[in-house]
Design a protein around this nucleic acid. Structure first.
Length: 283
DNA sequence: AACGGAACCTGAAAGC
DNA sequence: TGCTTTCAGGTTCCGT
């Protein structure tokens, strides 16, 4: 599940593959990825919404740079913009122009050197929006811990006045950009904070530990992703990776708490999502 | 304004 | 074995 670290890895890959190059041809294999409904970027105004319009808008464009904010990727073209979200199962892969279609391939960008940069997404929660203005969801993002930095003071300001649980607040992209279900759980465990506590009731010490926990879990995710993407292999996400689960509590309900080694990690549901936590270590 | 929950979509895993 | 159910995830949308 792509959260900030995986999206940042995707950004670096796209930069390597596309920056400075010209899109010779674009092809849309599944029009739903352009769509304004269902997935990310709902109210997306004047965009190239049909496969033909999108392909025409992309063809011949030079890619200046690839930016990221939260879980959104932003391809800056010579004329125009692309805002892309990986949703749940989206990924970008590099192929050669004459390679066969990928399973679940949705869109491709072909450049010089027979390069074929492809967007693949089984569940189609992701989007590739060819548009001249950022979608509302992207404009409304809170600060990005990696881009903007995050300290206790800034975190406190973002959580002030939020009466919902701190776990749900962390996952709200308008509060902070880039944190999803995994890193919210990990950060709260590292900080020793009960995920059910009200977001506006954390004291200065809580905020310090939570800001540090967020920075730490993102840094580790980034280091892990860098390792995985350093070769020429494709991005792999945790659940499809055969190597061990690298997280402290995510996906570990029922096993022993790695900190106190006494309590069994519990699973609870918040806002329809599961949270794993230790009732002894997280208060 | 803020919250809860369904909907979107489909593969994988668990249950029968 | 094969069918059915449940779960997972990020976001939008709708109703309260």
């Amino acid at each position: 599940m792509p959260e900030l670290p995986e999206v940042e890895i995707a950004r670096r890959q796209l930069e390597k593959w596309l920056a400075g190059r010209t899109i010779r041809e674009a092809r849309v294999l599944d029009a739903r990825v352009l769509g304004a409904r269902g997935g990310a970027g709902g109210k997306n105004g004047a965009g190239a919404g049909t496969p033909d319009a999108a392909a025409r808008a992309l063809a011949g464009q030079r890619v200046r740079s690839i930016e990221r904010r939260g879980k959104w990727l932003h391809l800056v073209l010579a004329r125009g913009e692309v805002y892309a979200h990986l949703g749940m199962t989206g990924k970008w892969v590099l192929r050669r122009a004459d390679d066969p279609d990928e399973r679940f391939e949705k869109l491709r960008l072909e450049t010089s050197g027979e390069r074929s940069v492809r967007y693949v997404d089984a569940r189609v929660f992701g989007r590739v929006l060819v548009t001249n203005e950022a979608p509302a969801a992207c404009r409304e993002l809170g600060p990005d811990p990696l881009v903007d930095g995050l300290d206790a003071k800034a975190l406190g300001a973002r959580l002030a006045g939020r009466r919902r649980s701190v776990k749900e607040a962390l996952m709200d992209q308008t509060v902070l950009a880039g944190i999803g279900n995994i890193h919210a759980q990990e950060a709260l465990f590292r900080a020793g904070i009960d995920p059910r506590r009200r977001a506006d009731r954390l004291d200065a010490s809580d905020l310090r530990r939570l800001a540090a926990g967020i920075r730490k879990t993102i840094a580790l995710g980034l280091a892990d992703g860098t390792k995985q993407s350093s070769g020429d292999g494709d991005m792999t996400y945790v659940e499809e990776d055969e190597t061990a689960n690298p997280f402290l509590v995510y996906g570990r309900a029922g096993s022993r708490c790695p900190r106190c080694r006494r309590e069994t990690l519990q699973r609870l549901v918040q806002g329809g999502r599961s949270t794993v936590h230790c009732v002894r270590c997280q208060r």
